[in-house]
Simulated scan of single mutants.
Amino acid sequence: MKTKFSSVTMIAIILAMITGCKSGNTEYDKMVQFGQKYTDAWNSKQPETMASFYADDGMLTVNNGKPAVGRRQLAETAQSYMEAFPDIELTMDSLTVGNGTYRYYWTFKGTNTGPGGTGNKVDFSGFEEWTMNDQGLVQKSIGTYDAEYYQRQLEGNK
């Protein structure tokens, strides 16, 4: 017996086979939702909310700098960006899966009008590479962005 499929159905089947997707409830889909909620937490301007996405002893290192370890230090790190850029607007660009990790790609926009700010706008992108714990929280995040480009924007020299 032959079965007929529409071209749209065939395309959906082929895409599901290629990507390994199951209808909307895969681990990847859950991580995309996690990433969007993490983005929302940054935009909430509540540093403790951002830190809640990390394990109690979670760690964030940005551009090989000093790591923020634990939720208190993570919240302090978030607070420093939120104060420096009161109009912070973070967007999630994409999320990819690596060898036991996820890469959360983002774009950060804001005006440096916080205490001691330059008044200049920044618009830069980067990513965080996440290692998750068994509770589904970030255990380790290694963040990267072009610090020279960011600094030029802060100084008004795009």
Rank of each mutant, 00 (worst) to 15 (best):
D57R: 08
D57I: 05
L60M: 11
V62F: 07
G65S: 11
K66S: 08
P67Q: 08
A68L: 08
A68G: 00
V69M: 08
V69L: 08
V69I: 14
R71M: 02
E76M: 13
E76S: 14
E76L: 06
A78W: 04
M82Q: 13
M82I: 14
M82G: 04
E83M: 12
A84F: 01
P86Q: 04
D87Q: 02
L90K: 09
L90F: 13
L90P: 01
T91R: 10
D93S: 02
D93G: 03
S94T: 09
G98W: 09
G98E: 07
N99V: 10
G100F: 00
G100D: 03
Y105F: 15
Y105D: 12
T107F: 01
F108R: 07
T111I: 12
T111F: 00
T113N: 14
P115E: 15
G117V: 06
N120W: 05
N120C: 03
D123K: 06
D123P: 04
S125K: 10
G126D: 08
G126Q: 10
E129S: 10
W130K: 06
T131C: 00
N133Y: 00
N133I: 10
Q135A: 15
G136H: 00
G136A: 00
L137I: 08
S141P: 00
S141C: 11
G143H: 08
T144P: 01
Y145S: 07
D146L: 01
D146N: 15
A147E: 15
Y150A: 11
Y150F: 14
Y150P: 03
Q151T: 11
R152E: 11
R152P: 04
R152K: 14
